[in-house]
């Protein structure tokens, strides 16, 4: 085995000036801007849903959109914080209250739909899955590339938070395009797609980081 002394000498001889990483706040803002531009472009191309003006006036719709967006923003900030060695692991909990508020808002909506219509209005909506996974995965890859330094520290949780951030932002964009009113449908298809992107990120994100860091 190489002696530790020799290794230190080798590392010191090898040292080059490095550009310090921007703050996690700035990195998060950069990624969020990029994600909002991508999803904004998708919304413009697909066109806003025809009744967006009425939908946006509904308090429950505003709460759903705001909590989903805040979940995405909080997850992105948490991912960039957690990617640094000296930040507390508790950053991972940052998106939890917003995600809980979003889920409880949709749960409340399910009960309201049930009381008003007598059914949850469940059906299939593979378009939601396609949109959130289709845009969520590339945005997650971008996040993994930007947090590649986490590959040596906490790659799994950072990648999972990146997936959550990407999918939550996609969900907000999709809500502006897609005519989907039943809370149970949003919970199932948006929520399910977000869970899928998060799990895929957790499983494969660390590999993306390792390749990007190599």
């Amino acid at each position: 085995m190489m002696r530790t002394d020799d290794l230190i000498r080798q590392l010191a001889a090898d040292v080059q000036p490095v550009r310090r990483l921007p703050t996690p706040w700035r990195l998060a803002a950069t990624w969020l801007l990029f994600a909002l531009l991508v999803i904004g472009a998708a919304v413009i191309v697909a066109g806003l849903r025809h009744d967006i003006a009425q939908r946006i006036m509904l308090p429950e719709e505003r709460v759903n959109l705001a909590t989903a967006l805040l979940t995405g923003i909080a997850a992105a900030i948490a991912a960039f914080q957690l990617a640094l060695p000296d930040r507390s692991a508790r950053w991972a909990l940052l998106p939890v209250p917003f995600a809980a508020a979003w889920l409880s808002g949709l749960g409340w909506g399910c009960m309201r739909d049930m009381a008003e219509d007598g059914s949850l209005g469940l059906g299939t909506s593979f378009g939601c899955l396609r949109f959130i996974v289709g845009f969520g995965v590339p945005l997650t890859v971008a996040m993994c590339w930007m947090t590649r330094h986490a590959s040596a520290i906490r790659p799994g949780p950072v990648a999972a938070l990146g997936g959550l951030a990407a999918a939550a932002v996609c969900s907000v964009g999709l809500s502006l395009i897609h005519h989907l009113d039943a809370a149970a449908m949003i919970l199932l298809w948006h929520g399910g797609s977000i869970v899928i992107v998060t799990l895929v990120a957790w499983a494969f994100g660390p590999r993306v980081m390792r390749v990007a860091a190599a």
Partner: peptide, 16 residues
């Protein structure tokens, strides 16, 4: 210890 030194070297740009 050596692994830590190597990681420290690779992540030195992340230190504020």
């Amino acid at each position: 210890v050596q692994d830590t030194l190597l990681t420290l070297h690779r992540l030195r740009h992340t230190y504020d």
